[in-house]
Design a protein around this nucleic acid. Structure first.
Lengths: 147, 147
DNA sequence: TATTGTTATACTCTATAACTATA
DNA sequence: TATAGTTATAGAGTATAACAATA
């Protein structure tokens, strides 16, 4: 059973590299780093504090400051004051950022289509369900680090 | 069906980030970058030319030169001349590199265990088979870029 | 001429430390 | 005192361009 688990981890790692690589390429086609693309993807449907976004992305708060400043200059993100705690800032997506997120997303779908296309409808649902079960258990653990 | 595909892509992306993050953390615990960890992982069971390894990793050849020089100084990798083409160099793993690769691998397994642990034996095999089918189709396309 | 690999250089992303403002 | 965020600085990883050696 040890051997089977190793093979599963190999497969997971390979799919992870392919997926990350495809996303990274789609992002850089639009002069976005992988991290910037993740950020606008995350902020598509919510607004987070700087500290919260930093934690989700696995970045230091100072690193995120720079990222957000650059994105704000390009009109992709926006910082708004948090009523109730005047130290804090909420990061929200700007219209141009939302458009870019959608474009990157479309590219990702197109690039992954050949991989997913080899599976029929039932298999895709099965795969999705298994992956989602994995992610649930990921929530139990501390945030993914990248340091 | 469009909605389902989007959900599958979301799940793929999330699992990819978790997996990459875990590997990155395991690597940096040993002063390896994610790319260096990938390199020693790839070279565990084969030797490649500089140019081939660069292509697999999605790096420029000049970038790989630096990476290999640093790894060679630490005794992790080794360059040997390619008989038959004296321009080329083959990159091989050194004993210390093989040990490190094994350690990183063990950490990766341990960190992913809680995620995989939620699945029973049959589901793990199912997931592995689906992921491997995806990877097959990835081989059809040009190498993953990261530029 | 074309290809393999290295060197020189510059840019981006990241973390650490010191700081300001607010809680 | 502790926390949220910014600024200054330095290190690592990467790409581009120019180059040397071999095919």
């Amino acid at each position: 059973m040890a051997a089977e688990q190793e093979d599963l981890i190999d497969a997971l790692a390979q799919v992870a590299f392919v997926t990350t690589g495809v996303l990274s390429a789609a992002a850089s086609d639009r002069d976005l780093s992988l991290t910037q693309a993740r950020a606008i993807g995350i902020l598509r449907d919510r607004r987070l504090r700087m500290s919260e976004l930093a934690q989700v992305l696995g970045l230091e708060k100072s690193t995120l400051s720079g990222l957000v400043v650059r994105a704000e200059k390009r009109g992709l993100l926006q910082r708004v004051p948090d009523d109730g705690d005047r130290r804090a800032a909420l990061v929200t997506i700007a219209p141009a950022g939302a458009r870019l997120a959608q474009e990157v997303r479309a590219d990702l779908e197109q690039a992954l289509a050949p991989l997913i296309g080899g599976l029929d409808e039932g298999e895709r649902l099965q795969l999705q369900a298994l992956l989602e079960r994995m992610i649930e258990h990921a929530g139990t653990r501390p945030e993914t680090r990248s340091s």
